[in-house]
Simulated assay, not measured.
Amino acid sequence: MWTISLSVLPIFLLLVCGNLLRRNGFPGGDFWHNADRVVYWVLFPALLFYNTTTAPFNDAIVGIYAAALIGGLVVTGLVSLALVWLFKIPDPIGGSIFQGASRHNTFIAFAVANYMFGDQGLLLAAVATAVLVPPTNLVCVSVLVGFRGASGTMSLKRRLGREIIRNPLLMAIGAGAILNFTGIGPIPVINDFAGILAKAALPVALLSVGAGLRIKSIHTGALYVTISTLCKLLVFPAVIAATVVFFGLHGMAAMVLIIYGTVPTASSGYALAKLLGADAEVMAGIITVQTLLAMITLPLSLTLAAHYFMTP
């Protein structure tokens, strides 16, 4: 327990540091807003591209990762929508609940995989991200548009196309995957350039995630936060763990899947909620509560998983 907790602790200290810096007005101005943009448009795409070009996309790993992650996404999403319908929750709030239940914080997942397993962990994290990010974005945009966005002038098909085209994470994954699958592999200079940017991605991203936490929003909609959090931190990892056991996956490959199952929801869900008419305040509460709870649940879950999946 202590070994894993200590390996994860620096990640959460970066979140705390980012929050304290923002709350104390340092460095001031629009710094944190612009830092988010740099991470989203430059640093993290570089990290994804750099690792996707050399990620081990063999049939066995990709198949198991797809079954676990997409299976978890589908089951968790359906459970959250069923609970939204059961409790007769308004559509804008339902969109935020769905996002909180189904999205995952890739920044934290990458950081944990890196701290626990080094470069090999990052390569497997790239596989998991390449498998999970495209369907997650498609599903979340579809549900939010279905709840609220369809009332506008933009159709679901057009909205989906726009979100796909403008998503830098999807473009980075696609470019890296093409180089990987075609056998071209890393391109000199360009890959080195991406690698230098990638080194800055995780620390800046984690500081920005911490800065984006809104402690005052914790009390926003206890029922909504509870539903979303139980789905994300209980149902999602349970589906992934069951799939890992079913396929008999062990070692580092199994642990990276568990990491993706146990991280909190993505902070980017707040911006998408505002863009597509979901309840942004509820989304802020969900992000904050899940991230704070993950400081306890993540090391605990990884300790239990390591006892089962890392033993000979």
Rank of each mutant, 00 (worst) to 15 (best):
146 G>A: 07
146 G>C: 08
146 G>S: 08
146 G>M: 01
147 F>V: 01
147 F>R: 11
147 F>T: 01
147 F>C: 06
148 R>P: 03
148 R>Q: 14
148 R>A: 12
149 G>H: 05
149 G>Y: 04
149 G>P: 06
149 G>Q: 07
149 G>I: 05
149 G>E: 02
149 G>W: 01
149 G>M: 00
150 A>N: 11
150 A>F: 15
151 S>I: 08
151 S>M: 09
151 S>T: 15
151 S>D: 15
151 S>H: 12
152 G>S: 08
152 G>M: 03
152 G>I: 03
153 T>W: 14
153 T>F: 11
153 T>P: 10
154 M>G: 06
155 S>H: 01
155 S>I: 02
156 L>G: 02
156 L>W: 13
156 L>S: 01
157 K>Y: 12
157 K>N: 10
157 K>P: 00
157 K>I: 09
157 K>C: 07
158 R>E: 14
158 R>H: 13
158 R>D: 15
159 R>Q: 13
159 R>E: 14
159 R>W: 10
159 R>N: 08
160 L>Q: 04
160 L>T: 00
160 L>I: 10
160 L>K: 00
160 L>R: 01
161 G>P: 03
161 G>Y: 10
161 G>D: 01
162 R>A: 14
162 R>N: 13
163 E>T: 05
163 E>D: 07
163 E>L: 02
163 E>K: 04
164 I>F: 10
164 I>Q: 00
164 I>W: 04
164 I>Y: 08
165 I>M: 12
165 I>A: 15
165 I>Y: 13
165 I>W: 12
166 R>T: 14
166 R>W: 09
166 R>K: 13
166 R>G: 09
167 N>G: 00
168 P>W: 05
168 P>M: 07
168 P>Q: 06
169 L>M: 13
169 L>R: 03
169 L>C: 09
169 L>N: 04
169 L>A: 09
170 L>T: 09
170 L>C: 06
171 M>V: 11
171 M>P: 01
171 M>Q: 06
172 A>L: 01
172 A>D: 02
172 A>P: 01
172 A>M: 07
172 A>K: 04
173 I>N: 00
173 I>S: 01
173 I>K: 03
173 I>T: 02
173 I>L: 08
174 G>N: 02
174 G>E: 02
174 G>I: 09
175 A>T: 08
176 G>V: 06
176 G>C: 03
176 G>H: 00
176 G>P: 01
177 A>P: 00
